[in-house]
Design a protein around this nucleic acid. Structure first.
Lengths: 191, 191
DNA sequence: CCGCGAGCATAACGACCGTCATGTGAATGG
DNA sequence: CCATTCACATGACGGTCGTTATGCTCGCGG
């Protein structure tokens, strides 16, 4: 036996690919420009991943993992402490000011997935994990399980829709007024 | 002078193209398969539209027009008559049972537009027209203009997000419970 | 009824696509 | 230290892409 495989290489590549995708999108992805941006030949991509389709699946899985970490790092307002609206407001501020390219990519992916143009379990899984986070917070505040699930679904849907609205129209004032109302509603659920 | 141009041809083509796009998506659009589906050669497309980019712009403009007609045909609940929630429930039922492929296409387009991968004024304009319809209904019920705009934004965002959730996860029960709550909220604004 | 232009097919162009066989060098377990 | 395996570049493959030059047909205005 000789030279063992480097188990980190794949993750490094996925991080670099993800960074590339946040700037160039995923819909018209082409392997040659991607490889060039990574400073390699296209063979690196077909070697570590079986082909383009498998690469995209791996990227979605990686993205799912990264979003899970993001959720886990979020404050989990219990029966004491701040409300859910604070999480909404803080998330919005972070997304808009620090993480816009990634948010754009996520909405491109969600749109393609909703259109049935992206298969695999990762996108529905990401939606489910977000819903579960919110529902858990609501239940911790004594909200019955079915109401918690319904309101979590509604809150996430509205948040997503407002992001799309903002990204599409750029109308900060109108969208952030609506976001304020949404955050207030979320607060009213946890008080 | 001879044979005058047929002014209907372009609209006929756009309708046929739109029908094709609802089944095959717009992200990976290729002229050859599209032309074949129309029963023509690709030259029909480059002849009536300057090129692929202009064709897509024309399709988006056409789609915008079709959506305007849809909005105009919607009931306009005034100070008397049914509430806004009824419109929400009826729209949902129609979208899910009769117009799913078009809804899929619209979300693919919105996602691409939010990601900045689709230029032109048509997608933001469509969002604006939907918002204006809802805001107008709210104002007709005596809601102050700024509140009407804010709630219209919120309602449309939530509706869009719920559609994406449903299209992605297929979880009818959970999403329709949330839709019910949303429709009830909309009713409470117009009573 | 003639001629012209609209509508369209055909076929070719160069560019780019994803994939893969082959070759090379470096690293490591035995 | 050597056999082996990984990591990667190179270059070619058949295929598809958007676009366009050329030419035919057919329907209307004069």
């Amino acid at each position: 036996m000789a030279r063992p495989r480097d188990p980190q290489r794949r993750t490094e590549l996925l991080d670099a690919i993800l960074a590339y995708l946040t700037e160039h999108g995923i819909a018209g992805l082409s392997l040659r420009p991607l490889a060039k941006a990574l400073g390699h030949s296209t063979y690196v991509l077909t070697h570590h991943f079986a082909g383009k389709d498998e690469l995209i699946s791996a990227v979605l899985a990686h993205l799912d993992r990264r979003q899970q970490e993001r959720l886990a790092a979020l404050p989990r307002p219990g029966e004491t402490g701040g409300g859910l609206g604070d999480v909404v407001r803080a998330s919005w501020a972070w997304h808009i000011t620090e993480d816009l390219p990634m948010v754009r990519l996520l909405h491109e992916i969600e749109g393609l997935s909703a259109a049935g143009r992206l298969t695999g379990p990762y996108v529905p899984r990401m939606l489910g994990e977000r819903a579960e986070y919110v529902a858990e917070v609501l239940r911790a505040h004594g909200v019955p399980a079915d109401v918690a699930l319904r309101n979590a679904t509604l809150l996430n849907a509205a948040y997503t829709g407002l992001q799309i609205d903002y990204l599409t129209t750029g109308d900060t004032e109108r969208v952030e007024a609506a976001l304020g109302a949404l955050a207030d509603t979320a607060d009213s659920w946890t008080r």
